[in-house]
Amino acid sequence: MDARRDIPLVITFLVGVIAVMDYYTTFSAVKETFTVIKNWGVVLNAFALGLGAVNLFRVHGRRISERKRSDWPFSAWLLLMLVIFVLVGLGTGQFDASDQYQWIYNALYLPIGATMYASLCFYMSYGAYKILRARNLDSFLLFVTAIFVVLGNTPLFPALFPPFFHIREWIFKAVVGGAYRGIRIGVGIGAVVLGIRTLIGMETGYLGRR
């Protein structure tokens, strides 16, 4: 047995099978084992949260030490922010519940996080102006429901002409309800098959390089 490859595959299989058995059986031994697995899962996921930071230190640390790129001061600023968050979070002993931590979060993190995602509205508007064209039947179909959903979503239009709202509701009920259920069944089958292949060791992409 290859410790580098076979043991991880066995771990995946055993843990996955216990999770599935917990759902379909009532054996107390399975339930108790799965409770421990769930707890370990939470702790391991918590450990994994630091992986991104380690990578950032590797990449930006190198940039700072080499100083080849003109934007290396930004790398220094990035790492400084990282360190400040960690120091404030751990220093107070209360982690995210401390006033100091909430202050830096609300001042530095929240406004950028909220704005970054929201500013996609500008790209969408520009895209609608430049690209969204009813060129053929396929794009026309996409276009027509998009228009009616926007009309129904925009409070002004249903206020002027209430059927716009009902058309939007109908699109969601009949058209979206039908097509997305078909998609959902397809995705569900795909996910289950992929899951089973992973558990029995036929999908090994998660093990990374050989």
């Binding site: 508007s125 609608a128 102006y129 690209i131 064209r133 009813a134 009309l151 925009t154 002004l156 239009f157």
Partner: peptide
């Protein structure tokens, strides 16, 4: 409404 105008003008 502005987006709708953009879409209509574009088309």
């Amino acid at each position: 409404t502005l987006v709708l105008i953009f879409i209509i003008v574009g088309n």
